[in-house]
Write a protein that binds this DNA or RNA. Structure first.
Lengths: 357, 357
DNA sequence: TTGTAAGCGTTATCAA
DNA sequence: TTGATAACGCTTACAA
């Protein structure tokens, strides 16, 4: 940005000179109105107005006070993707609301393009913020290190669990378990799983044993564990459950992935999808193949995004907005303690599931 | 945020002392790697690492250089609403991408709750930004004044036209004209208009003459003009075109508003909606009333949000993302000139329109 | 190639 | 109630 707007910026001093008081007094007029006579304050404010003084410079104020009055929200995804993801948006929503209440600014920082080359975004180190919310960031991301190095309060939402850093999340394993259990109780014995990415390599294909043992995202790992646990309890071996991994959480990927699950001699009667977007995409394919939901195939999502209701999709409701508000709260509290918040999820049963054929 | 993280913050000086060089040299190691020997630089960086120095403090840097490395995006809406509006999100998307390329941070600032009490958000004055993008802000909003007072570069997207401030937008009037003309060419003579809000009073009802003359949003005024112009050319008087005003751009409001248009002795055969969200909501109601689209009622939207395609809605395509990228470009250019960018729109014809019955 | 010194615009401390 | 003065941590001529 050019500096040509800075034509001799008006400062506290100018106002002070104009009124004939010290610059401290002018500062007080803004910061501590009680510290000077109302009359003088009026006079100062009037002079400021006249001179075009627009109030304390943020940078200077920040340097002097040590606080920025802003917090950073760090995505692990490209911003462009983030703005299409209803779940992220809901979290962001909660964050924004809380920031509003606290009169705190919100800086959006995307780690997106940087995940690939393992370089943290410049802005991460540069941003004038008092703390960071790390939202679903890959544990091996350089961002995590950089954020920790900045020596400001941190809060992690969903990903990853970090020692000494407050955490906001849900019981992914338990929630997944309940989803699988619900389908088992309906008599299903032939399952297929649509998994979200286990690594950042763009892999689209069956979840191999090797990949299963090296899952970068703890939420994904937990959900998988939950599914598998429930199935095992019912005597179904994990090897017998076709599991397809999808690199992007999108309807389109769900639509493509589910084909590979349905294309089998023993077609699954129940699909466990790790997200609603994936599930909704899958539903389109299922119907396009001439199968009925839930008569031929039951399907269970995860997240309870707004579109899930319209799609009549059974799912796990996550309190996305509260994740955001809790994160801001923890950041403000910043007790230095390691308070973790595990929010409750809810089983939402809709028309996408039914008894096994 | 607490300062307890500041346990004796490590500064340039500490690093300098450790290495045994001056203050400036350490600064150069970060800013101008070419100004010192590679060996020395290595040594300095190593010492910094060891001491836990995380790089120049953003506030101090900003104060010294005069630039923040961030820009502010100012919404006129509540953030919670903004995150549900596909059009806003697309613009934001473009902004975010451009910021990414320029390694610039992005601060989101909502004027939302403040429109009501006419108080500009504190953060607006406080945010450490080099410039603002005002996105579709009400002309009478205090935000506009405050933003101008900050004496930083400004760019307006959509709303309002400000003297001496670069503007990014579309030809709202011409686009609306084409929409209406398209329906006229299909033989329609009985129209209904679903208008977005003309003022911030939450009004839901017929657009009165008085309100029509006092439209706060220029884009709304222009679209209305475009519709009316086309209709007048076809010999249809504005008084004969029922027009319903809606306070919120949402599907739900569209669904409700259209009832009042269809509930008439002379039922319109064509509906002009000022947004796709409103149009999509209206389509639900139209069908719920047992009417067929387009056989009984044709409907035309505005925006071309992603959902418009699925809804098979004819509409005006706006290049939302480019609005964002252009805004950032103008802000960076900040020539001080008054460059305006009027982006092209496109008529998108889909199944929601057909010949008049 | 490195160092000196003067800001940048505030806030905060403490004395007047 | 008001005012010196000293930070705050950095960048940047300019000098060595």
């Amino acid at each position: 940005m050019t500096r040509q707007y800075d034509r001799r910026k008006v400062t506290l001093k100018d106002v002070a000179a104009q009124v004939g008081v010290s610059h401290t007094t002018v500062s007080n007029a803004y910061i501590r109105p009680g510290q000077l006579s109302a009359a003088l304050r009026e006079k100062i404010l009037a002079a400021a107005q006249e001179l075009g003084y627009t109030g304390p410079d943020p940078a200077a104020k920040q340097l002097a006070t040590g606080r920025a009055g802003a917090l950073g929200f760090l995505f692990s995804e490209d911003l462009p993707y983030a703005f299409t993801d209803p779940a992220i948006l809901s979290v962001l929503n909660g964050v924004a609301r809380s920031c509003d209440e606290r009169e705190t600014d919100l800086a959006l920082i995307s780690a997106g393009s940087n995940l690939r080359n393992r370089t943290a975004p410049v802005s991460l180190g540069n941003a004038a913020v008092d703390g960071y919310i790390l939202y679903s960031v890959a544990p091996d991301s350089r961002c995590v290190m950089m954020a920790q190095q900045r020596n400001v309060p941190l809060v992690v939402v969903d990903q990853p669990r970090l020692n000494g850093v407050p955490y906001v999340g849900i019981d992914d394993r338990g929630s997944a378990y309940r989803a699988a259990k619900t389908l088992l109780d309906l008599g299903h014995r032939h399952f297929g799983i649509l998994s979200l990415k286990t690594a950042h390599d763009g892999y689209f294909g069956p979840l191999t044993a090797k990949r299963r043992d090296n899952i970068a995202h703890s939420t994904i790992a937990m959900r998988l564990e939950g599914y598998v646990l429930a199935l095992q309890e019912a005597g179904i071996a994990p090897e017998d459950v076709p599991t397809w991994e999808i690199p992007i959480n999108s309807e389109d990927m769900g639509a493509q992935g589910v084909r590979h699950l349905l294309n089998r001699a023993q077609r699954p009667t129940a699909i466990l999808a790790m997200s609603d977007r994936v599930a909704i995409g899958a539903m389109q394919t299922i119907r396009a193949l001439g199968l009925n939901i839930p008569q031929d195939v039951s399907i269970f999502g995860f997240d309870d995004i707004p579109a899930a209701e319209g799609a009549d999709l059974s799912t796990i409701h996550q309190p996305h907005e509260r994740k955001g508000t809790e994160a801001v709260r923890l950041l403000s509290a910043a007790t230095g303690s390691n308070e973790n918040v595990i929010l409750e999820t809810e089983l939402v049963l809709r028309g996408s599931i039914g008894p096994a054929a």
